[in-house]
């Protein structure tokens, strides 16, 4: 019951956050130099065409009124036409977002499993060579941008070893499943096409790992240091002193409190992956939202930019709600204070 309460409150807050974000997006789009109407029709169009378009786009009205029009359209899912693709922005996003979400989801999964796993191993073998290897890897992982990993992986696994495909979402000759969610792995499973599913997974592997490397390294570091900190706490000494076996002390009484900071950071990392993925999407020719958004920015495609930023904002807010729920499940102190204030 309290969880539902918590959820409802968080969603209401989120609506306000997104409203604030929409105002910022709208203002930035309008204060950018250059006339959107002129850019839409091109440099050689006659002035009267531009003027008529300005009228149509409500560009001659006060900003507040413009924002009102813009918001009421946006709420109905209408962000206007994209200048580059000449299609409704919403159609574009419907096409590109699932591919990005699929990529980010798998990369997040790898970050969680890989990062927490390495962190536990590192803490378990603290101050041995294993720990040192993990720590050195972590520093490299954190300072190296994901596109460097992408290129290295393509060279190693794509060209030299020839193990994994390096371009696109599925092989050219693979039957594409009927479109349901837009995520090929999910659609393939829904259609029962396991061959396509594995092919899509193989295509996902390299871009997902490239994206996850930084976050794996970060998560490993945080998990290790929070486990190492908690290891010297009295509650661990007490659990040991009262005869609880070492594997239970480590795997249960040490792990749970230590995961709290990791989960918080992991959530933020996953959410930001969605927006920083553009280089990886570009390198792997992955038709994702980050690449679409980057293109829109380079071409001053204001409608597309606004929509992409709003979608990213919504993704951040959603991930944060999920993280808060997981952290509240892990930490009773947060759970209890949340219900008390409700």
């Amino acid at each position: 019951m309290s969880l539902l309460n918590f959820l409802v409150r968080r969603i209401i807050y989120s609506v306000f956050v997104l409203l604030g974000l929409s105002i910022v997006i709208f203002l930035i789009a309008r204060v950018m130099p250059g006339d959107p109407a002129r850019m839409a029709v091109g440099a050689r169009a006659p002035q009267w065409v531009v003027d008529r378009l300005r009228e149509q786009m409500h560009l001659n009205q006060p900003l507040v009124v413009q924002y009102g029009y813009w918001l009421s359209d946006a709420v109905r899912g209408d962000f206007g036409l994209s200048l580059i693709t000449q299609r409704p922005v919403t159609t574009d996003i419907k096409e590109f977002l699932p591919a990005s979400l699929e990529l980010v989801f798998f990369s997040g999964l790898l970050s969680a499993v890989g990062g927490i796993g390495l962190g536990i191993v590192s803490a378990r073998y603290k101050d041995t060579w294993i720990d040192n290897v993990v720590r050195v890897f972590s520093y490299f992982g954190i300072v190296t941008p994901s596109f460097v990993f992408a290129i290295l992986f393509i060279l190693l696994f794509g060209f030299t070893l020839n193990w994994l495909p390096i371009i696109g979402r599925v092989h050219e000759q693979t039957a594409v499943p009927p479109l349901v969610t837009g995520a090929i792995t999910v659609d393939a499973l829904l259609a029962g096409q396991f061959g396509t599913f594995f092919d899509a997974l193989r295509h996902l592997l390299l871009p997902a790992i490239s994206l996850a490397m930084g976050s794996i390294a970060q998560e490993a570091r945080i998990t290790r240091s929070s486990m190492a900190d908690n290891l010297s706490k009295d509650y661990i000494a007490s659990a040991r002193a009262l005869g609880i076996p070492e594997r239970v002390v480590m795997g249960r009484f040490l792990l749970k409190p230590s995961l709290i900071p990791t989960v918080s950071i992991l959530g933020l990392d996953i959410a930001s992956t969605l927006s920083v993925a553009f280089l990886v999407e570009l390198i792997f020719n992955w038709p994702g939202l980050a690449r679409y958004g980057m293109n829109a920015m380079l071409h001053k495609d204001l409608n597309a930019i606004s929509a992409v930023i709003l979608v990213l904002g919504a993704a951040f807010v959603t991930v944060n709600i999920i993280v808060d729920i997981i952290v509240a499940q892990l930490d009773p102190r947060i759970r209890l204070s949340a219900t008390r204030s409700a």
Partner: peptide, 25 residues
């Protein structure tokens, strides 16, 4: 060692707040 800790010797720690794990009931 685990048997000694379990059935042989028990210890009450100085600060009960630190000796109880905050995230387990």
């Amino acid at each position: 060692l685990q048997r000694v800790r379990g059935r042989g010797i028990s210890m009450i720690f100085q600060d009960p707040t630190a000796a109880l794990n905050p995230v387990f009931s």
